[in-house]
Amino acid sequence: MKLTDAIGPENVKLDMEATDKREAIEELIELMAESCERCDADTILEAVLARERDGSTGLEKGVAIPHAKCDAVARLRIVVGVSHDGVDFESLDGKPSHLFFLLVAPTGESGPHVQAIAKIVKMIKLDRFRERLIKAKRPEDVIETIERVENGEA
């Protein structure tokens, strides 16, 4: 699967306003719900927070990948957020998270979910990829960057 099949400019938020972990998750879910009429934001929030209680998805290098499986979505949904100030997401290295990928998949469809997470984990290892997303001026820049890396052009 291609990530850009699941992420459009409407699924990208630059200049996130959240100042803490819960606010960041809420802001991302709100963005997801804006482009998905049938997505139940409250159920998604509950699922993502439950997953975070098992262990934070704040990784190193300023990236967090909160995710959950729940039937409040009909297919894999992904949103991307950028916080220039950074958010304490209880990350592995203790540093603030600036780049967020929130993924929610229905319970009966794990394959694409796992593949998408794996692909994101792979991409965020690339310094230039992270830098380009953080410096993006428009949501379209984020999509273009993801697409270029997916196509092996970056």
Binding site: D54, G55, H67, L92, H113, V121
Partner: peptide
Amino acid sequence: LLAELLKARVFVQMEKMDYERDL
């Protein structure tokens, strides 16, 4: 792949087992 995601700390152990059953 699941082991890689566990190692990267994206998954926790229980979650990995859950995804393994799903897959």
